Computed example of a mutant assay.
Amino acid sequence: MSKETLFALSLFPYLAFLWFLTRSGKTPKLALIGFYMLLIFVAVTIPAGIYAKVAYGDQLANIDWLHGGAEFFLTLSNILVVLGFRQAIIDKTQSSNSKSV
């Protein structure tokens, strides 16, 4: 199985993950936005990879400015997930402290 096929097939479990995560209603909103942002990373990476191959005759990882631009969306996704869960932990800690007082 080619890496492109595997990449395309991996989208379905991730979409199921997002569906369950959204339906649960328990995921911090900012973290959920971060998980959805990963789809934007995928949507940007695919055309960037095609452009790298057509315009430069090389893979995306070897064209620094394109690769960095695409990876920005992955970094942003990760930051949003971390900040979302961080805020949830802070809120939970504060509510636990106020109940014990």
Rank of each mutant, 00 (worst) to 15 (best):
7 F>K: 12
21 L>Q: 14
13 P>Y: 10
7 F>D: 12
94 Q>F: 00
39 L>D: 07
14 Y>S: 04
100 S>G: 01
83 L>T: 05
30 L>A: 11
50 I>N: 04
48 A>V: 02
38 L>S: 09
71 E>P: 00
14 Y>C: 06
26 K>F: 04
25 G>C: 06
97 N>W: 13
85 F>H: 07
94 Q>H: 00
91 D>K: 14
98 S>Q: 15
56 Y>C: 02
47 P>E: 01
89 I>L: 14
37 M>S: 15
71 E>M: 07
81 V>P: 05
53 K>C: 04
40 I>T: 13
9 L>A: 15
58 D>H: 09
73 F>E: 04
5 T>M: 14
31 A>E: 05
87 Q>A: 12
85 F>M: 07
75 T>S: 12
5 T>F: 14
71 E>A: 06
57 G>W: 09
68 G>S: 10
95 S>D: 12
13 P>R: 08
29 K>W: 09
47 P>V: 01
55 A>P: 05
15 L>G: 03
62 N>P: 02
44 V>W: 05
29 K>A: 10
93 T>H: 10
67 H>G: 07
94 Q>W: 01
23 R>H: 08
1 M>G: 10
44 V>S: 02
3 K>Q: 04
17 F>K: 04
60 L>D: 03
85 F>W: 12
12 F>N: 01
66 L>T: 05
10 S>Y: 03
68 G>E: 10
100 S>K: 11
100 S>H: 06
72 F>M: 01
98 S>D: 13
1 M>A: 11
65 W>D: 01
52 A>K: 03
26 K>A: 06
73 F>N: 02
79 I>G: 00
82 V>L: 15
34 G>T: 04
80 L>N: 09
52 A>W: 02
61 A>W: 13
76 L>D: 00
41 F>Y: 15
74 L>R: 11
73 F>I: 01
11 L>T: 13
41 F>Q: 11
76 L>N: 00
11 L>A: 11
68 G>W: 08
96 S>F: 11
36 Y>V: 08
64 D>A: 11
30 L>H: 05
59 Q>Y: 14
66 L>Q: 12
58 D>E: 15
58 D>I: 06
56 Y>H: 13
84 G>W: 08
26 K>D: 04
87 Q>T: 10
63 I>H: 02
73 F>V: 02
86 R>N: 05
73 F>A: 03
42 V>H: 12
23 R>C: 08
65 W>G: 00
30 L>C: 08
8 A>Y: 07
35 F>K: 01
60 L>K: 05
67 H>W: 14
99 K>W: 02
75 T>C: 08
22 T>D: 10
25 G>R: 08
70 A>K: 10
92 K>C: 07
63 I>Y: 03
84 G>I: 10
32 L>S: 03
20 F>M: 13
77 S>Q: 10
21 L>F: 08
95 S>C: 01
1 M>F: 10
90 I>H: 01
27 T>G: 06
70 A>E: 08
76 L>R: 00
87 Q>K: 15
85 F>A: 04
83 L>A: 10
57 G>M: 10
24 S>D: 06
51 Y>L: 12
80 L>R: 11
19 W>Q: 07
14 Y>D: 02
57 G>L: 09
75 T>Q: 11
87 Q>W: 09
6 L>E: 03
72 F>D: 00
47 P>Q: 01
36 Y>K: 12
90 I>S: 01
71 E>S: 04
62 N>V: 07
